[in-house]
Design a protein around this nucleic acid. Structure first.
Lengths: 180, 180
DNA sequence: CCAGGACATGTCCCTAGGGACATATGGGAG
DNA sequence: CTCCCATATGTCCCTAGGGACATGTCCTGG
C-alpha cells in the first residue's frame, strides 16, 4: 500500500496529473520505489473514489490534474506517523552473493567489478544531485530539503554497496575442506 | 523469479525439505529475501515438475527432502552468470523520507531516533555473526565463506542506514520560503 | 495413555506489480 | 497540410507475494 501514500505525498507538494506523477516516479523514485503508469492511473482513480484526491482541472490531451484533499493530507500524515514501517529490503544482488561459492573465480571477479562500477556510478549521480542542491540550485523549500535527505541515503547506500563489492574481491576463495 | 533460484542455491548445498528451506529463509534470508512456506512448497513442486530438483527421501511426518539435479545446478549457475541482475531496491523508509517535510519536527525526531536504533541493532547482530564466523565457529566451507560476504553487505548497509538516520537528525528543518 | 506442541505440508484468496497492448490528441517540423 | 512525436490515459493479463486457514504426524511430559 505504499504506492498510494507515495502518490498522496507527491500530491501534497501541489496538483499533478497521472502523467506527471509517473514521470516523477521513474525519474526520481525509480531506484527506491519503481511504479509504472498503469498502476498510477488505477490508484489515482481509487484515491479519487475515496475522496483523498480530487480532479483539479482538465487540460489539453485529456489531461486531468489531481489535487490532494484535506482527507488525503490527513491520511498521508497518519501513514507517516502512525503506520508501522516495513523495513523489508529485497536486494537480489545480496541473494546472489549467498551463492558466490557456485561461481568460477573469474566469473565472480568480473561480476564484482561490474557491480562495484555500477554502484559507484549511481552513488556519483546522487552525489552530484546533492552538490547541486547544496549550491542552492533547487531552492530551499521544505520539499527539496526532504529530497536532499533521501538523496543522502542513496549516496550512503550505494557507496556502501560499491565498497562492499570492492572488498569482496579481496576475500580469498574458500579452501576446499577436503579431497581434491 | 528469484525465489526459484534462491531455493536452487540453497539446495546446491545439500538436500533439504520445504520446511528446512522455509526456516532458512525466515532465519537467514528474512531481511534480504522474505519468503513464506506456501510459496516455497509451491515452487518446489514446480521445480520438481521441471526436473530441476527431485525427491531424495521421504521421512517421518510426510517429510520430503529434495535434492538438486544436474539440470538444477546448471540452471542456478546460468542464473548467476548470465541472467541480468535486478538492482531494484524497494525501501519504504526511503520513500517515507521524501515526505519528512510533512511531519512535525518532534515526530520526525522520534522517528529518526527509532530508525537509528533499529538499524544499529540489526548491524550489530550481523557484526556478531561475522565475528563468530571469523573465529571459525562455522568452519571454512565455501558456503559459509559466501555467507560471510553476504553478512558483510548487511553490516555495511545497516550501518549506513543507522548513520544516515543519525545524520538526518542534524539537518535543520527547512526555513519556510515565504509567508507565515 | 493422552494432551499439547513442534514438525511438516499444503490450499485458497486477495493484492501488488510488471509488461504488452490500445488509443486519443496537440504541437512542431518539413 | 500532413506526418510524426511527445503528451496523456487507460485496459488486460499474468506472476509474485502475503496472510488466513486446514491438516496430518511424531515426540514428550504429565
Amino acid at each position: 500500500m505504499s504506492l498510494r501514500h507515495g502518490l498522496l505525498g507527491l500530491l501534497a507538494e501541489g496538483p499533478a496529473s497521472g502523467y506527471d506523477l509517473a514521470r516523477r516516479f521513474t525519474e526520481v523514485l525509480g531506484s527506491i520505489w519503481p511504479a509504472q503508469h498503469p498502476k498510477i492511473y488505477a490508484e489515482l482513480g481509487k484515491l479519487a473514489g475515496e475522496g483523498l484526491v480530487e480532479v483539479e482541472s482538465e487540460g489539453p490531451r485529456r489531461r486531468k490534474a489531481y489535487r490532494i484533499t484535506d482527507a488525503g493530507l490527513a491520511e498521508v500524515k497518519r501513514w507517516l506517523t502512525e503506520v508501522e514501517i516495513d523495513h523489508t529490503m529485497r536486494l537480489q544482488p545480496l541473494l546472489r552473493s549467498l551463492f558466490f561459492w557456485l561461481m568460477d573465480a573469474d566469473d565472480l571477479q568480473r561480476h564484482l567489478e561490474s557491480e562495484a562500477r555500477f554502484y559507484s556510478e549511481l552513488a556519483e549521480q546522487y552525489r552530484q544531485y546533492a552538490a547541486a542542491k547544496d549550491r542552492g540550485d533547487f531552492g530551499y523549500s521544505p520539499q527539496t530539503q526532504s529530497m536532499r535527505v533521501t538523496v543522502e541515503a542513496g549516496i550512503r547506500l550505494y557507496s556502501a554497496l560499491a565498497e562492499w563489492a570492492e572488498w569482496a574481491q579481496t576475500v580469498p576463495p574458500a579452501k576446499p575442506s577436503k579431497d581434491h
